[in-house]
Simulated scan of single mutants.
Amino acid sequence: MTAQFEYSTLANPQDIQQLGTIFEQCFISGLGGEEAYINLIGVENFRIIRKSEQLVGGLATLDMGQWWGGVRVPMTGIAVVGIAPEYRGSGGAIALMQHTLKELYDRGIPLSALYPAAQSLYRKVGYEQGGSWCNWQVATNTIHLREQPLPLQPVVPINNQVFHELYQQQARLTHGYLDRHPAIWEGLIQADKNEVVYAYFIGTKDQPEGYIIFTQKRTQDGEIIFVKDWVLRTVAAAQTFWSFLASHRSQIQQVRWKSSAIDSLTFVLPEQTAKMSSQFRWMLRVVDLVKALEMRGYPSGIETELHLEIQDNLLDANNGKFILSVANGRGEVTKGGKGELQLDVRELAPIYTSLFTPYHLQISGKLHGTETAISAATQIFAGSSPWVADFF
């Protein structure tokens, strides 16, 4: 199928314009300026595919990292996969993804993640559900926290560099968090039309214990604070975060923010008044099996072996039997072994991220394994509910 398509980087000005037009139609101008978006991500980070010399579609690659077990693992995000409507169903999207994944493997990238518009397409090339992206909301008059232990310091002008170290401190401890691409940071601090972005350090400027970045909007549901980003490193910071938001109750009816499916922020509230308004699952692909398993962190108190047998229909090097040996919080992979846990590389993703336990995947018919292997995999990949705060 892929032989009839030609895969390449994006360089020609005419191709840039044409790809922008395809994106505009695919995403109904949702990017707010397609060529500006291409320039923000960087022309060199786009890949395109042609059929009979005609541009069929393209995508963006965002090189960044993701935190697993307290360790940053290189990860390439895939964004804006767009195929011209007249070429849909031709196999162009699958060919584009297959070529991209082979390139990522050749570059030594362990992981890739994306937000699917059509989950079945990405499953065909080895992606599977990896974690959550959730929207939460609470009415300001139900927060009922008044004590504010820390001061708030306005940040003007807003520059993501001043937040970066605080963010990384929280990211290291948050299963699945991104080491963000610069374009994601840019989206957090840049205002859309007709809005203002506000940012505050929580605590002193010299030693902040967190921060909040938000906008305020009038909507048909009333006045709402949209928290674009937050970091809370201490109990006092969490208390201050909620009391600060509660202090807006005379003018603001509701607060909305991104968090995990199991949101520890809401545990601070006196009552269960916060509700998840929507949940979406992003997908992960193990691109380089050995690197993905060796580069992440593991629970420090475990010393065991897991004998894997992996099938990967796209990337040959991931096929076969492997032994994952875990000790002192790190993993080492060798070829061979008993192949006691048998699964497709696709099903490795939700185990790797701790989204589902091996037992749950076993009873879903997604893997086969001995009792010993299921037990070892459960210990090795134990972790909190994985989530990402950013849509890309």
Rank of each mutant, 00 (worst) to 15 (best):
T61A: 10
W136F: 01
I310Q: 09
G32H: 09
L104M: 13
I184R: 00
S375H: 15
Q4S: 11
L55I: 06
V162L: 08
T372Q: 15
I224H: 14
D263P: 00
Q311H: 13
K205H: 01
Q251N: 12
T219S: 15
N313H: 11
G329E: 03
L289K: 02
R123N: 05
L31W: 03
R72Q: 15
Q279F: 00
S250C: 01
Q220E: 14
L178M: 12
R281I: 05
V290C: 09
D229M: 03
A139D: 15
L306C: 04
T334C: 12
Q119L: 13
W136T: 03
R296M: 05
H360A: 14
S325M: 06
Y352T: 06
A139H: 14
F23P: 00
I38V: 13
S385K: 05
W185Y: 12
S8R: 11
A117T: 13
P299T: 11
N319D: 11
P270H: 07
A117C: 00
V196C: 05
Y200Q: 09
T234I: 07
A376T: 06
Q169M: 07
I202E: 05
R346A: 12
V255Q: 05
E147I: 12
S300F: 13
V73A: 04
P110K: 04
R107P: 12
P157K: 04
S354K: 05
L324E: 05
W136L: 00
T204F: 01
K258I: 09
I374D: 08
T21M: 00
Q4N: 07
